[in-house]
Write a protein that binds this DNA or RNA. Structure first.
Lengths: 106, 106
DNA sequence: AGCTAACATCGTCACTCAACGATAAGACAT
DNA sequence: ATGTCTTATCGTTGAGTGACGATGTTAGCT
């Protein structure tokens, strides 16, 4: 029976598996806003960055920046660790590389 | 006066210029949905593809697929040329490469 | 304990998106 | 010209997004 029935991956029309398609879409969604691209670049440039510094640089309110950071963090592209009363954000290189790999595989 | 005033690009905190940030965000937005990633991959695998073939493969209605194609076309990732009563879609390699370049530059 | 500073979360509003069925538009056949 | 096939567009509905101010929360300071 299973000799004739194609599996899910057989039906997938590309080199990316279906879970990878979804992963790629999720990562793209996280970067689908200019502010989040900019935040990511700030974090790449400076190795790490206090949240407040990002707020200062961007023309957005603190709560909006925090929301963008939450989305980036949720996508796994960014990590935030508590440093006393502040939160220090930095990129998550493995996930960023995964993203690059998925894009490069297109 | 302009010797002291920083230009827009000077204020940008990354290696990507501000227009490129927006371009990257737009391209990511176009791929921020699994269906569109899948469509793009179908078009990469088969060099070109009749619209109807895509509809057949995907679990979405014709109108929904058409809308996804419109978004991909609007982003410049995909081209569609009329072939009699059908429309033949194919990827736009320069734009796809531009996208890859922007991602790789992160 | 109480205060302040830094950040997250909540509540809200306007706006956009995804999905579909229904309908329009265009090119070919008869 | 009429009909048919293929694709695009319209209209609508429900869900999600982006933005903000206001409020909650947590860590340090006095």
């Amino acid at each position: 029976m299973d000799t004739l029935k194609p599996s899910c991956t057989d039906l997938c029309t590309s080199e990316l598996t279906q879970p990878n398609q979804q992963a790629l879409a999720s990562l793209c969604k996280a970067l689908a806003h200019p502010a989040r691209v900019q935040i990511l670049q700030i974090l790449i440039e400076r190795k790490s960055c206090i949240c407040g510094e990002i707020v200062e640089v961007m023309p957005l309110s603190q709560s909006t920046v925090s929301e963008h950071l939450r989305i980036l963090k949720q996508a796994g592209l960014v990590q935030g660790e508590v440093d006393g009363p502040r939160v220090c954000y930095c990129i998550n290189p493995p996930m960023l590389n995964h993203f690059k790999t998925l894009i490069a595989a297109l």
